[in-house]
């Protein structure tokens, strides 16, 4: 028994070390966000210093950055939701219904993601320009739908395949319609992994930089684009403000993902 405990503690220590590796760079950024410029660039690196709030004050005063955060918080969840609505049933179809060319279509969906952003960005820019939608939130959402829907389908196929076929067959026998089987049996059973995939897609969209850079400018600017703009003031790198912005801008998605990990599975299981 004692041996087992020893092993247990050993693994716990390793896990804590791993968590440190995950967090150390972020902690360093957190620390740096309270430093004045002279403390950030001084060597040896300073662990003890007089904290200043200047960086946070400046970041919070930058209208564009907060605007970008708001836009991202609108664009990404809506794209994700639309991706869910359009993608999840199709993922289910691919997993359960056999039809001609199913494998080819599936590969087509994956191949949508092969296209280098540099190539598609310009055509998108020109479409939205002609439609007068440049720099608007709907344009960004539509552009992101390719990513959201195709990734959603691609990732949920396997989630549905994990659901035991027997449950569905039983439901069919009891006279449920196909939609009922999908919405009452398959979806609730597969939802924990689907939500995991949603986090993943959320992160993909949240970090998307290039397409948003080309098709937005100010009104619909997303968080990565806005924060990239402030990463260089003139040609000066404002280290403290960058750190403060990294910390501040990570908080909303953090809360969201906590929500995903912790609460959503229960919500779906209950219903």
């Amino acid at each position: 028994m004692a041996r087992v405990n020893g092993k247990d503690i050993f693994y716990k220590i390793i896990i804590i070390l791993v968590l440190l590796i995950a967090l150390a760079p972020i902690l360093w950024m957190f620390l740096s966000s309270f430093k004045s410029r002279v403390d950030i660039i001084s060597y040896p690196p300073k662990f003890i210093f007089t904290p200043v709030m200047d960086n946070y004050k400046r970041v919070l005063q930058m209208p564009t950055l907060m605007h970008g955060l708001r836009n991202s918080l609108t664009i990404v969840p809506i794209s994700l939701l639309l991706g869910f609505i359009f993608g999840v049933p199709v993922g289910y179809i691919f997993a359960r219904i056999k039809f001609k060319r199913s494998a080819d279509l599936r590969f087509f969906i994956l191949s949508l993601r092969f296209m280098p952003p540099v190539a598609v960005a310009l055509p998108f820019f020109l479409i939205w320009m002609r439609l007068g939608l440049l720099d608007t939130i709907p344009a960004v959402i539509f552009t992101y739908l390719t990513i959201a829907i195709s990734t959603m389908i691609w990732l949920t196929i396997e989630c549905f395949k994990q659901v035991p076929v027997e449950c569905e067959e039983a439901a069919h026998l009891e006279g449920c319609t196909q939609f009922q089987v999908f919405s009452r049996i398959a979806l609730p059973l597969a939802i924990p992994s689907i939500l995991g995939m949603c986090i993943f897609i959320f992160i993909l969209l949240w970090n998307e930089f290039f397409l948003a850079f080309v098709i937005t400018s100010q009104r619909a600017v997303t968080m990565p684009v806005a924060s990239a703009a402030f990463a260089v003031v003139g040609m000066e790198v404002p280290w403290g403000q960058i750190c403060a912005s990294v910390i501040l801008l990570s908080i909303p998605p953090l809360i969201l993902s906590y929500f995903f990990v912790k609460f959503l599975p229960y919500f779906f299981k209950v219903s």
Partner: peptide, 17 residues
């Protein structure tokens, strides 16, 4: 007046585009 901010290199690409 509305300011559209981009870092230097991006600003150049944007204006040309």
């Amino acid at each position: 007046v509305v300011f559209h901010y981009f870092a230097e290199l991006e600003r150049r690409s944007k204006s040309r585009l």
